[in-house]
Write a protein that binds this DNA or RNA. Structure first.
Length: 184
DNA sequence: GATAAGATGTTA
DNA sequence: AACATCTTATCA
């Protein structure tokens, strides 16, 4: 039996970015490291689209943002403040710059105690090598599986974190009362 | 080629 | 509230 049978379908990511950000809550990010597989439930996300000045794809395709224009389900990893990586899932459609930032996970394997996008990537050994890999490919060392469905009553939608432009947009989603959601 | 700013996290 | 730390974008 294939341990990756529950991987997300391409159509899941090929939708409106805010929908994907909402639906990704409860899904499982998986990372293979050697013979071990680490899993974490996604509990906090943020949506970024091309029209949004806070999005790295806002000014069009650049060397850094080019991943955001790949097909839905592609990973976009970038370095922030010279020391932390952040992981995005590309959404919507090819050649349109949009994605969902994964901000926090609930650890389902030990040793993954994290909160916040930077530590998340440190724990999962996500670096520039992961950039532009396909998160929906069963042969990849990192992928996303379907998890539990989060009812609307347990989803909180608020403003995004740590940005200057359009900071009031309520494009951040997290699971209510979940201990692993980042603070700030 | 130089420079400022940044989707963060830790420390005081 | 300061700071660590470096790539990218945006000038010149």
């Amino acid at each position: 039996m294939n341990e990756k049978h529950n991987i997300l379908k391409r159509e899941f990511c090929a939708r409106n970015t805010q929908i994907v950000a909402r639906e990704l809550l409860g899904c499982i990010l998986c990372r293979k490291s050697g013979s071990e597989i680490f899993r974490g439930k996604i509990v906090e996300t943020e949506a970024y689209v091309q029209e949004d000045a806070a999005c790295h794809a806002h000014k069009g395709r650049t060397k850094r943002s080019s991943s955001l224009f790949e097909q839905p389900g592609t990973a976009y990893v970038y370095l922030i403040y010279g020391m932390y990586n952040c992981l995005n899932v590309v959404t919507d459609r090819k050649d349109y710059g949009s994605g969902v930032l994964l901000r926090a996970l609930e650890p389902l394997s030990s040793g993954l105690e994290t909160n916040g996008p930077g530590k998340l990537c440190r724990a999962f050994e996500i670096n520039s090598e992961v950039n532009k890999t396909d998160l929906l490919n069963p042969n990849s060392d990192i992928w996303i599986e379907y998890g539990e469905k989060i009812p609307d009553g347990n989803v909180v939608q608020t403003a995004r974190v740590g940005i200057k432009h359009n900071a009031h947009y309520p494009w951040r989603f997290y699971i209510k009362d979940n201990k692993w959601v980042s603070k700030r």
